[in-house]
Design a protein around this nucleic acid. Structure first.
Lengths: 229, 229
DNA sequence: TTAGTAGTTATGTTCTACATAATAAATGTA
DNA sequence: TACATTTATTATGTAGAACATAACTACTAA
């Protein structure tokens, strides 16, 4: 191969500008609230049209990394990571292996929140959780809804807002995979009410065991080691 | 209040177009590979300039939801969710509560991967992991590096590429928080070598206990229930 | 039949112009 | 002097035209 031939960046100007700006932000260690140069200044510095700069800036605006006010100009701000994630998590257009990964990721979260739960749970939380679990026994029409309510409350109890929002995002994916594989919502041996009891009177270890038992049907479906594509 | 006065969308045209397009995609149930209308057609349909449409499209291109080739036009494609996440995960500009949340999220992941590990682990994996753990005892200069290598291998062993990449993204956040709170990298009672042994000969339950013990110093630092901001 | 050429089309990029909102400066009046 | 009002000024927001460029299509000529 000829070495002097460059792979032709092929990247659009907007993409390159995005990259340059990102480097610029970290290099100058911009913090939320810091003002940016004007669009025209950026365009001049980068040697591209204002239009291209705006396309790149538009991306940062979507991520919440940049906010703008007319005349005042642009400032760096705190991005909303879960909100951003929401914009890409569209099960219909995601490839199957990623969907499967996310399905497993949710199982990992479910199994992993135990210790956090024991640190953060309050008596009021437990009462509410118990009520949710009790409700489902009566009007047991929509198993999925009660699932969502119960597990959602669990995440809420962790006091971790990001985690809570994250799991909410994963719900559609979870449902999508379950439907895709034609799985039934098979209940594990330990019910929601059982979990509440464990959470109230048992140790973290007990609860972990209970949760595993509750999710066992899902784990049973997972693929063995074989190096996956 | 006067009702006929609209709240003035205040959203930029680009943002509105982004939203419209997103709805359009799902409504028409676009799938990867499906071709989109041309920029000019979109602009005409939406009643905005091509410029605005391009700013919105640029956002989708960043997310990997849209790919383009000249002349051929634009097609829907599989977004790369971890790659997208990477673009917003900049510890320096994230607010502290989110950083704390992500710190906890990583702990949740560490505690939650046990069952997945036992499903997917292979003898070769265990050998490699043991080697990593052994290496650190000798040249124990960079504790952080060995931490990364060991735990990184654990995620790799889950066979879940998304999970693995996700945790890699969380590493800088983890390190940032540790530094921020002036924590030391205090080692838990169970060492890496201890974890390997458990993983080899113990039950999932044993391993979970071991991992908790390994991470205990971090858990000890977590805040009590108090409703956080 | 096939190699090559010209034409067509959709994206990529630039430039100009003007609208709009928010700030700063200037002005006028009590 | 103090304060209210008006008038620039400036940076972002939007529109439109123009041309470059790559890739596909169809036609032409040997």
């Amino acid at each position: 191969m000829v070495n002097s031939i460059k792979p032709i960046s092929s990247k659009s100007m907007a993409e390159q500008v995005e990259q340059h700006l990102r480097e610029y932000f970290t290099r100058e260690s911009f913090k939320p609230g810091d003002a940016l140069p004007t669009e025209l200044e950026l365009a001049a510095s980068l040697g591209v049209s204002r239009n291209v700069v705006r396309e790149a800036l538009s991306r940062f605006k979507m991520l919440g990394i940049i906010e703008t006010k007319k005349k005042t100009g642009m400032v760096i701000s705190n991005p909303d990571i879960v909100g951003t994630l929401e914009k890409v998590l569209a099960p219909e257009i995601m490839d199957e292996s990623t969907l499967q990964d996310l399905f497993e990721l949710r199982l990992v979260l479910e199994m992993g929140i135990a210790d956090l739960l024991y640190i953060r749970k309050t008596p009021e939380d437990l009462d509410e959780l118990e009520e949710i679990a009790a409700r489902e026994v009566k009007g047991s029409n929509f198993r999925i809804n009660t699932e969502i309510a119960f597990h959602g409350k669990l995440y809420e109890m962790t006091g971790n807002e990001t985690l809570k929002r994250f799991q909410t995002l994963l719900l559609p994916v979870f449902g999508y995979v379950v439907k895709l594989e034609n799985k039934k919502y098979i209940a594990g041996k330990v019910t929601h009410q059982g979990l509440v009891k464990l959470l109230r009177k048992g140790t973290p270890k007990d609860f972990k065991e209970g949760m595993l038992s509750h999710l066992q049907p899902h784990f049973d479906r997972l693929n063995p080691p074989k190096k996956r594509g």
